[in-house]
Design a protein around this nucleic acid. Structure first.
Lengths: 343, 343
DNA sequence: CTGTTAGCGCCTTCAA
DNA sequence: TTGAAGGCGCTAACAG
């Protein structure tokens, strides 16, 4: 296993100085065509590839972005990672992927690693739990951070989120339009802003249409599929069970779907479901209506803001913190149970 | 945005030399308890984090592994990435993620990037198409490479694959046990070893049980969901359509599933399906039997072999090339259509 | 247009 | 036990 050639070896082979090699290969500074060609040839034959560590030690930039994701098993975050990688790559950045697995301590360690790596910027989907002085640590970071999906109280950082109240509202409007009156909600912990906003939007829209959301039909669980499964089983076993259910994210929807199947029910024949985020690879044919978060747009915004901050790095003052809020949209798939037709 | 503190600043604050700081923080060499504590305190207050680039320039290792994945939209590869990240992380390695998107040219560029980054090792799931001198380039690499899932003709590298003939065999045995006689296959291009092996195992097992696979019921398509959808639609529209279908991977299964739904059929009521890889997050309840590839084990083997090579780096000769073949297993889910019961 | 030089931050001799 | 010095590979500044 020979080590990769260095600039010095290229220089020797081409019969020039290392500075000339550098200039030739980076098209910086003037180099005569003859030497240009000779250097290129030498680099070619040696299979030269510049040593990124040496270069970033010198230049102070790594052309790497850190992706610190709370939970990569969430299909929505996964699609986000996919988009982020693609967009970063198109802009000439590589991507260091870290999964915190909803573990605060892992997030802390991963962040330290990204700092050590001197990544040029960080896309952070924070864990639900925090760790000691998280806000302070993030604020003191030398690399710009953009927060995605989950905003963070007190942190003065760029943010990309969706309008979660609107997500709830779209879900409610969809079910109302189909004639549903008795509806349930499978959600995670109401202590988390995001889930609460989705519920609020849902409830308020129902209320505005004269329907009072029965609190007994709001299952507040842990954010796990299992908890959602149990909650949903409970809810659907009631005599006065709802005709439609709103699931506030992918994990909730999977749990709900499991309960539905387990109970011998079929979607959308027996029950209508609207969920935030399309269930991956089954979306349009599952009979489940989805409130879709525009992950490609979110990724584009996030990387865009990051690159802007990176560009500003040497400026005296950075611009004001930006907060982009994107709108989700309904994707009914045309197959949700309609009470109107049934009647 | 202040830059991260350097070892020099820590040294000054602690009133010692940089060498002492280095020794103290890395527990290499002897340092008195007093200085040890003073250094630790200084590092703490300055928020010191060693500059990974400087360190790797010096040490010649990056503690980064490259993940070069052919197609991250394939749920199976995605689960693999998840496992790989987790295992690498547990071993103190970070992960640089690249998606080739089944594009040979992108793979080539990404590989160059990984070389520039001087990653300590590369997990490669190669694209189906090759690029000029791919084998040569990979063979000449200074970092060890482990090939996952798709072996590569002529490349002398460690490999982790599953027994693809066995995958076909398990699928066939499952369907035979359920009493199916007329079965179809939705596969990608037979030019690719992997798909061909799965078909071979399937066909041979049928033959061994006195059943001749009707070649008209083998849809050979591109490896896309769309192509599979079309092929499946064609197959299921026949008068003599099969009672069970084998899909050779996730994309094929999704296409097949789409066709089934589109034609108003239900799984497993109207047709039995067995597919390689569990459809993500729907597996046990979908009525589809899965030939499961043990992704966690595959990831463990791959990282293990890589770390072993990395450990051997300075050795005179590396050990012989290893080729691990893992066994898939059937996960029927108890809900596949049984012809026996139906009769 | 080309080459020499210095230094980015770190770790590892080697000498005290 | 501690510190001084050199060099990993690269590029920007300057000198020729």
């Amino acid at each position: 296993m020979p080590a990769v050639a260095t600039i010095k070896e290229v220089a020797r082979l081409a019969g020039v100085s290392t500075a000339t090699v550098s200039k030739a290969l980076n098209s910086s500074g003037r180099v005569s065509d003859v030497l240009q060609a000779r250097v290129a040839a030498a680099a070619q034959t040696l299979g030269y590839a510049p040593h990124a560590s040496a270069r970033s030690l010198r230049s102070g930039e790594t052309r790497i972005l850190g992706l610190l994701v709370a939970d990569i098993t969430n299909p929505y975050f996964l699609r986000l990672v996919e988009s982020l990688e693609q967009i970063a790559s198109a802009q000439g950045y590589s991507v260091l992927l870290c999964n915190s697995n909803e573990d605060a301590e892992r997030e802390r360690r991963n962040l330290g690693m990204l700092v050590s790596q001197r990544v040029d910027g960080i896309v952070l989907i924070p864990t639900r739990e925090s760790w000691p002085n998280r806000v302070g640590s993030l604020a003191g970071l030398s690399a710009p951070v953009v927060l995605v999906d989950r905003p963070m109280e007190g942190l003065d950082a760029d943010t990309v989120t969706i309008d979660n109240r609107m997500a709830g509202r779209l879900a409610a409007e969809h079910l109302l339009a189909l004639g549903h009156r008795r509806v349930g909600v499978i959600m995670g912990s109401p202590e988390h802003t995001l889930a609460r906003h989705r519920l609020d939007g849902f409830r308020q829209t129902l209320a505005a249409n004269g329907i009072m959301l029965d609190d007994a039909l709001v299952e507040r669980n842990h954010f796990t599929e299992e908890a959602a499964f149990e909650g949903a089983t409970r809810m659907l076993s009631r005599a006065d069970r709802p005709t439609a259910v709103f699931a506030t994210n992918n994990h909730m929807a999977f749990g709900l779907l499991g309960a539905v199947t387990e109970l011998g029910m079929t979607v959308p024949r027996d029950i209508a479901i609207v969920a935030v985020d399309r269930l991956p690879w089954t979306g349009r044919r599952s009979g489940i209506a989805a409130i879709v978060q525009p992950s490609a747009d979110i990724a584009r915004s996030a990387i865009g803001m990051l690159l802007q901050r990176i560009g500003e790095r040497d400026e005296p003052v950075g611009g004001p913190v930006q907060s982009v809020v994107l709108q989700p949209h309904l994707e009914a798939g045309g197959s949700t149970l309609s009470i109107l037709e049934a009647e």
